[in-house]
Each structure stands twice: as C-alpha cells, then as structure tokens.
C-alpha cells in the first residue's frame, strides 16, 4: 500500500514538473478551463441572488382591493366588513383615501405635487391576506374572480402576479444556467482531451519504450490522468480567483441596487461547499476527459 501510494505521488510530482517545464502552454489551457467554469458560475450566482430576493416575497401574497371612488365612506366600510368575514381571508386592513395618500407621500416624497392637485385622487382600499389554503396561485386567482363580482369594488390586484412572473423568469434562468453548464462542460472535455492528446503525441517514444519493457496500460495511462486532474483542479482554483475579481468589479453596482431594495446585500455569497464543488468539478471533469482521450490515443501506440 505504501509503495503504491509512493508511486502515485511520484507520478503526481512528475506531472507537476511537466507543468513547470511548459508554463505558458499549461497556463493557457488552465485559463481556458477557468473561464469555462466562471461563466456558468456567474449565472449561478445571479440565479441564487434572484432566488434570495424572491424568497422574501413568498408565503405572504397580498390582495389589494380598490373601492369605487363614487362610493361613500359608509358603503366602503360595509364592503370591508363583508370581506373581513369571508372564510378565505385571514386578515384585512382598511385604508381610507386619506391614509392611502399619507402612505404614498411618505414613500414617494411627492407631497408638493399632490397638494397642487387640490383633491385626493386615491380611492379607499382594503389590503387583505388570504389564509394558508388559499395562498396558492390557482385558488388566489379563483378568489380574485369571486371578489370582483362584489358591487362597489373597482379593481383587485394580486401581488402574486408579478411574483409569478419573476418566478417563471427565474425558472428560465435556471434552465439556461444548466444548459450553459452542460455545453461548457462539453467544451471543457474537448479542451482537456485535446491537450492530453498533444501530450501523448509528444511522449510517443517514451510510451513505446515503457510498453516495450512491460509497462501495463494502467501504468502508461496514469501520468496523463494526473495531467487531466491537475489541469481541471488548477482551472477550478483559477476560476475562483476570477470570480473573486468579478465580484469586486460588479459589487458597487449591486450595492446600489441593494439599498434601493432596502436589503443589506443582494449578491448571493458562494459558501465553501460550493467553492469546493467548482474545484472538484474541474478536477473530476479533467480526469474523465483525460481518461477518454487516453483510451482513444494510447491504443494506437504499440510497443517498439
């Protein structure tokens, strides 16, 4: 076991040595792998950030019900009472036109312009929250059509409408991310495979002699598998560095956005688990790509 480990270590160091002897070619390959890994990673982070934002909204859909402005305050209160007793509605809050205006001025800071209008243009409204069973998109939609039939209700807006839109957007982004991951993995396969092929061709004589003196295929194959693995791992580490610098570049813009959304941060932070995953993914892909390449090209080299 010990000698087995020793032999593997020896081959590993020899592989590192080959890297050091051809630094530019190796670095080029490593950088291409890194970029290939960075692109889907950035998409993944964007996706996760979006999901983080969406999470804040979910679980509490709101129904905004606007009362006909023609209706008097008394009749509006009656509608509020009716809604409060509706079995599907858990809580409901009544907003007089005056309260609605105050809330709007506080949020927008447009008090001056509104004063200028002279008269409050806002209707009375009711903000209702459905109970758990009716929080799903479908039942919420049914509730909306039901309430719309009540006389005196001008219009109803579901908060969910654009949560839904955002979610379907995220879904699209998710699929795109995975597709990109798959496509770029294929590209990575070709890159590593081709690099290994060139290495094999360069060392053809060496392979022939090793096979001549009885080297098994496993023995001849091993250094190339290490190359593939090392290329992948180095590419992964390089990708992390690139991601770090990308984050530094993008984050001022995102911080701006974050303050707009009154959140501390919008950017999803990769945890160490995911960081490790990127490196391991590079390594594993490199290894497998090398294995396939070696299987294709070593077969044609006969002992001599």
């Amino acid at each position: 076991m010990r000698t087995y480990l020793n032999r593997h270590l020896q081959v590993l160091f020899a592989a590192i040595g080959t890297f050091a002897r051809t630094p530019f070619a190796s670095l080029a390959t490593i950088l291409i792998i890194a970029i290939t890994l960075v692109l889907p990673s950035i998409l993944y982070i964007t996706l996760k950030s979006g999901q983080q934002i969406a999470e804040g909204w979910q679980g509490r859909p709101q129904i905004s019900i606007f009362i006909d402005t023609e209706l008097g305050a008394q009749e509006a209160k009656l509608i509020f009472a009716e809604l409060s007793l509706h079995p599907a509605i858990e809580t409901a809050e009544f907003l007089t036109p005056q309260q609605a205006l105050e809330e709007f001025t506080a949020l927008s800071g447009m008090s001056y312009e509104l004063d200028f209008l002279g008269e409050n243009p806002l209707p009375a409204s009711i903000v209702a929250m459905p109970d758990q069973e009716n929080s799903e998109s479908d039942s919420l939609q049914a509730l909306k059509t039901e309430l719309e039939k009540i006389e005196g209700i001008e219009s109803i807006r579901l908060d969910l409408e654009w949560t839904d839109k955002f979610n379907s957007l995220l879904n699209t982004a998710e699929r795109t991310t995975y597709l990109l991951f798959a496509l770029l993995s294929a590209a990575l396969f070709l890159i590593v495979g081709n690099t290994i092929k060139l290495l094999i061709m360069n060392r053809r004589d060496e392979i022939e002699v090793t096979k001549l003196v009885g080297g098994s295929n496993a023995f001849v194959r091993r250094p190339f598998l290490y190359y593939g693995f090392l290329f992948g791992v180095c590419g992964g580490v390089c990708a992390l560095v690139l991601l770090y610098f990308s984050a530094i570049y993008i984050s001022p813009a995102l911080e701006n956005l974050a303050t707009l959304y009154q959140k501390e941060t919008l950017v999803y932070q990769l945890n160490w688990h995911e960081l490790l995953c990127i490196v391991a993914f590079g390594g594993a892909l490199g290894w497998i790509a090398a294995r396939l390449s070696v299987a294709r090209h070593l077969r044609h080299i006969k002992p001599r």
Binding site: E208, L212, V213, G214, G215, S216, N217, P303, R304
Partner: peptide, 25 residues
C-alpha cells in the same frame, strides 16, 4: 490481449535493440 503480453514481457523478457530504446527523461 495487450495487457497480458505486457505482463509476460515484464516478467520474463529482456530487450536490446539497435536504437537502444532508453527513456531520455
């Protein structure tokens, strides 16, 4: 197969060729 023949070579065969066939590395 090729693996089997390589194992036999490793176990019982020696070679001396005109072109020496040494590993330069």
């Amino acid at each position: 197969d090729e693996e089997g023949r390589a194992a036999v070579r490793a176990k019982m065969v020696g070679f001396v060729f005109q072109t020496f066939q040494l590993l330069s590395s």
